[in-house]
Design a protein around this nucleic acid. Structure first.
Lengths: 351, 351
DNA sequence: AGTCTTTTCCAAAGCGCTTTGGATTTTGAT
DNA sequence: ATCAAAATCCAAAGCGCTTTGGAAAAGACT
């Protein structure tokens, strides 16, 4: 019945070896014979030895913590998206013995926070969430030399940082074309906050597609804001009140899309036959059926689809790779969104 | 231009004081004069001194990290709820200089994980999420002596652990009574997973209220499962296919409630006039309008309402208090949910 | 002035790990 | 048998903080 946890000293004494040898045996250094290594590992197991993280961290400067600094309060829309991203990333971290250090802070404090996290050696790397166009955090992190990966992009080039992004421009371009091909000419856009780079790109895709088809932009059909259910609801009510309402709506998330559906329902309109709706679908978990064995329903929303959870996994892997070898060339990865046709699109209704 | 971060030794040399005095000055010990304390604080500021967390942690055994161990993958429903809870808790932690250590792990591994976190002194305390009835984690944590607070309860007494819970039983009792008073007699329940204590209590409230009004239970009207949108959708379709469908539905979250609304819409039924719906509303952020200045809409769902974000704040405060003084008597707090009447309830329609 | 407290400060010993720079033993080649 | 090389192990010096057990200086009181 040991009162205190066993430490390296106790373990090495029990084995009749030096702390050096035990430490090396456990950390897989080559200069210890397989025979002693096996002995050490067995004893460590038996005595339930676990190296102290703070001591190891003090000695090595590595914390085995990944920083995620997010502003959950300000841009509330990211909450559910963030949770799914973290669910993916966390899975990868767990497999590699890392934990998430989560810090909530408004955007304007994040630069200072990164500075402190780096100086304190509190984290081994960070993930940048929700990059703005020309996001200052990226420069700061490069200057600090703290390994990081951006979920999304911050500029056109994307050359001086590692990133993983979905081809938002193409997804919205394609969705717009799809609607135009169906015969729609008045297509509304309910977008995210366009200071965020992903939303800016989505708008570009939409605008380019319309321009290519010779359809003039109409500012009264374009909304930008936090992607909440009420955003979709309100935008739709405004759209329906227009002299000439749109016949289709492109929306940046299934969350506002649900608000759109609600507003349409109240107006006695059916999504699809009466108003086409195409949403960007991040495969949020709470909208998915649990048992994936079950016969898959025909998807409700016609959607551009890309799993944010898978994105979390990929970003986490990229970051762990960078931490293992900070000198490796900057990687980047661009995923295409699937386009799935559901029940919410149809040719424009004649009225 | 200092290359390395300044540490206590450098700071004390710069001041011509010993490390002891500097450390004590910074940590507010009484045995250092206000004059020197001021000097020290000024110099620390000027030289941008920050104590190393791992060194401090090694010396004190405190990590200033709060553990949140969750199984985001298994019970997917908790994702958005969890995000809002964390948003609240994180705010409190930030104010007190704590960070969240987030670890994703299936429920069956959590006991082992708590053991390791305690032995490693990796966290100063933990929050227990989603307690089951007779949850084994509670016994483990008590045995480990790791400070913790339970969000919810695990048994009837709730005596040997600190907890904060919503009065789920009363909320569902009241909602059921409300529907009965409106004239409903066939009331369905779309519940969460009933191994979880909160869901079990909700069912009890529902059953008791029905019993009190002399209404027999009908198992075909009761559903239990992960609280997702499709859960609500599917349950509703099953209910509508019944020989004698219910006239009202009680649902454990607005997420499945949205699925209910979708299914009703497809069937050409209006929530409210054609089918009453009462939901438990956790005030999830992405369902709320952003600018709270804006004229508040009449709430859509009739709901039992309690902010999970506020719960996060409260639980965090309770935990920090326990960490400050682990010997303090066990606290507990029971919140009553608001009952707000929205647009989704009405007397049963005659058909 | 001399004694007794208080106040103010410090040297040094941890906390538990990693890692440098040898020392010792074993192996292999001559 | 001899010597160089390879394999195996170790003592001790950090890493940067907190904290114990005093010591020195200052103030209070006869």
């Amino acid at each position: 019945m040991t009162r205190k946890a066993v430490n390296l000293k106790m373990l090495s004494e029990a084995l009749g070896l030096s702390q050096t040898t035990v430490s090396r045996a456990l950390n897989g250094f080559p200069e210890v014979s397989e025979k002693t290594r096996a002995r050490v590992v067995e004893a460590a197991e038996r005595l339930n030895y676990r190296p102290s993280p703070s001591a190891a961290s003090l000695a090595t400067g590595k914390s085995r913590l990944i920083g995620h600094v997010v502003s959950l309060s300000a841009h509330i829309m990211i909450n559910p998206h963030f949770a799914d991203f973290i669910a993916g990333a966390g899975e990868v971290y767990s497999e590699s013995g890392y934990d998430i250090l989560l810090r909530l802070a408004p955007l304007e404090e994040q630069e200072r926070i990164y500075h402190n996290l780096a100086q304190d050696q509190r984290v081994d790397g960070v993930v940048v969430h929700g990059p703005l166009t020309n996001d200052r955090r990226i420069g700061i992190l490069n200057a600090l030399g703290l390994p990081f990966v951006v979920h999304g992009r911050s500029d056109e080039e994307g050359r001086d940082y590692a990133w993983m992004d979905v081809n938002n421009r193409r997804a919205f371009h394609r969705a717009t074309e799809f609607l135009v091909d169906l015969g729609h000419r008045r297509i509304a856009l309910v977008n995210g906050i366009e200071a965020m780079n992903f939303a800016a790109r989505r708008r570009q895709g939409y605008e380019t597609a319309l321009a290519e088809r010779g359809i003039a932009l109409d500012e009264t059909l374009m909304f930008s804001g936090d992607m909440t259910e009420p955003q979709g609801y309100r935008a739709t009510r405004e759209l329906l009140a227009l002299g000439e309402p749109p016949t289709a709506i492109l929306v940046a998330s299934v969350l506002p899309a649900m608000g759109i559906a609600r507003a349409l329902g109240e107006a006695g309109l059916r999504p699809g036959p009466d108003m086409s709706v195409v949403a960007f679908d991040d495969c949020l978990s709470f909208l998915e059926p649990i048992d994936t064995d079950a016969p898959r329903d025909i998807p409700y929303f016609t959607a551009m689809r890309s799993s944010i959870r898978e994105a979390g996994k990929r970003v986490a892997r990229m970051l762990l790779d960078r931490i293992d070898d900070p000198q490796r060339p900057l990687e980047s990865e661009l995923w295409e969104a699937d386009f799935v046709v559901g029940q919410t699109t149809a040719p424009p209704s004649r009225r």
